[in-house]
Design a protein around this nucleic acid. Structure first.
Lengths: 159, 159
DNA sequence: CGAATTTCAGTTGTGCACAACCGATCTCGC
DNA sequence: GCGAGATCGGTTGTGCACAACTGAAATTCG
């Protein structure tokens, strides 16, 4: 039932925005966004990482990460420095302030868990598996339209 | 397990972006975005709607919809006109071109369904129910921080 | 009636996402 | 060495998403 699958996509979109709202409210006192929180969480858990590595964890490219990390650096949450070993690479590491947030924000996972109201750990695990399955399928299924094929005569090309 | 719940949030975020990528590739020949496609789908299914009604279906406010609908009107996909009955209201309806896209884009639901690779209709229904449950819980759970409470002394307020 | 309140669409400003592209740098094969 | 190709981070430009606000219009109520 194709229409149901599109409803799942919309539900994904709506649920993501709902969780994002909750993170926004929780993070507002620190003036952090959800992606910024994810960067902090990555560095807390994995230690200093290159921009590319952070991008792999978050699945974002430099076009998104560069300005995001620049804003975080301006606020003294992280620092970026060129790698000595490879001058193409920029290593991102936490400042003292960024590290200190780990303590300040330690209540957030529990607050999110409460807000989501999943039945139990097995429930969450099952959902996690299915979401990752969708993500993998969709990534595998991207219909490779050649980058910016002109496609004359489709829509919006007259007048 | 709080950490698992945060992983579900991230999986939601990642899965949404993956589906969005697939829609982007499918819609690229018509130079449409996923939210624009949703507006078209709403109008195809529900007929002419006020901006507020479209916003209720998509769960978006006028801050997002106004520029989105303006771009669609500039491309002659929809038309907006002030309601005669209530001058505050703007009714959105399809143009001939917007209506014609219903035929051009009728392959998309099946393409999405194929890409998602869900087992069967019952599988999709179950997932849909759980996603809607999360969305509802999160909306109910928004920790009402007073709008833009200054919160001095948190982070980013010195220097 | 007429003032206070509410509703509605729009605007402004900020921050993601992402395609497309760029320059610097590294690697590999010769 | 050295030149072709790959890798890395950054920039540009477009389009959401959203908070906060505005002004016009409708509604409520004293």
């Amino acid at each position: 039932m194709a229409v149901t699958d599109e409803m799942v996509c919309f539900a994904l979109y709506a649920a993501h925005r709902a969780t994002s709202q909750t993170y926004r409210a929780l993070l507002a006192p620190w003036d952090l966004t959800y992606p910024q929180y994810l960067v902090l969480a990555t560095l807390w858990n994995e230690g200093p990482q290159s921009v590319r590595e952070v991008g792999e964890v978050m699945q974002l490219d430099s076009g998104t990460l560069s300005p995001l990390l620049r804003r975080m650096e301006e606020r003294d949450l992280v620092r970026r420095e060129r790698s000595a070993a490879d001058a193409r690479v920029v290593d991102v590491h936490l400042t003292d302030r960024g590290l200190a947030l780990r303590t300040d924000l330690c209540h957030i996972p529990a607050a999110i868990a409460t807000g989501m109201g999943l039945a139990d750990a097995a429930d969450a695990e099952g959902l996690l598996r299915r979401l990752r399955g969708i993500e993998a399928s969709m990534h595998a299924a991207v219909p490779q339209a050649a980058p910016h094929e002109p496609v004359a005569g489709a829509a919006g090309d007259d007048r």
